[in-house]
Design a protein around this nucleic acid. Structure first.
Length: 261
DNA sequence: ATGGTGGAAGGTCCA
């Protein structure tokens, strides 16, 4: 099964890019974040026309929004209203009898990495703590977790560890908390299991840099994890950088993982 | 220290 995750930054604006990506890369299960539309306006027809007749979407006006679309049938297992907010940042499904798939859009956290003055950063940290506590209780299950987690946890997940150490997405509290979620939840960070830690690895390049490819000031904000008890079935994984060069691109690029389930 | 760009809106908020 070939599963992909992509922060698409408006599914309606970039529907043709998503369809092109799915067809060119022969994706089976497509997970999206930042769809930025209510369910009634989600372009489900376009997905159905390429054989993606199964979907679980959860969106709101203008912000957030997550979706899982698939060639194969699955069972919706619901969503959690993290931090008691009714925002659309999470859904989960069972893609077979055994395996649960979680799709997350973690809060970006605003600019100031001080939870006492920046409520967005406080929200991000609270969200992460709730994620940690939730998955502590799920250790025996077979799980996949994907999405835009808005944190680059390792030194070579950013273009300059020293210059970004006080920048939201790479601060100590964020990176330590994310690594703790991985460790305490028996997760494997698939892309980092496949790529040595001394190699730079990014999934996002800011729109604010016109020469994004030359300057290459990226960050690895997007993630694909499996539970430890599932990782042996992972056959390959890539961060598919090509889409960042497409016309009117998302600032994030997809991750593709092949897994024998 | 600042601003750089993009999306959904049709204000400005958010990234």
């Amino acid at each position: 099964m070939r599963i992909a995750t992509w922060n698409i930054n408006s599914v309606r604006l970039r529907i043709h890019q998503v369809l092109r990506f799915i067809k060119e890369q022969n994706i089976d299960v497509m997970c999206l974040q930042e769809t930025k539309t209510q369910n009634e306006f989600f372009p489900t027809d376009a997905f159905e026309q390429i054989g993606f007749k199964n979907y679980y979407i959860r969106g709101e006006k203008s912000y957030n929004g997550v979706a899982i679309l698939s060639k194969f049938s699955f069972k919706e297992t619901g969503h959690i209203d993290w931090c008691n907010k009714l925002d659309t940042r999470h859904i989960s499904v069972k893609i077979n009898e055994q395996v649960e798939l979680h799709n997350f859009y973690v809060p970006a956290g605003g600019d100031d990495p001080d939870p006492s003055v920046n409520p967005k950063f406080e929200h991000k940290i609270s969200f992460l703590n709730e994620m940690r506590n939730y998955f502590l209780k799920e250790k025996k299950t077979k799980r996949i977790l994907v999405g835009d987690l808005n944190i680059a946890p390792l030194e070579n997940d950013v273009w300059s560890h020293n210059q970004l150490i006080n920048v939201v997405s790479h601060t100590k509290i964020e990176t330590e908390t994310l690594l703790d979620i991985i460790q305490s939840g028996d997760w494997i960070d698939v892309m980092r299991e496949l790529v040595p830690h001394d190699e730079k690895l990014y999934s996002w390049w800011s729109y604010r840099n016109r020469n994004w490819e030359i300057s290459n000031r990226g960050r690895r904000l997007d993630h694909f994890w499996t539970s430890k008890n599932l990782f042996s079935l992972v056959k390959s994984g890539v961060i598919y950088k090509n889409t960042r060069s497409w016309e009117k691109p998302s600032d994030h690029v997809p991750i593709i993982v092949d897994i024998n389930i």
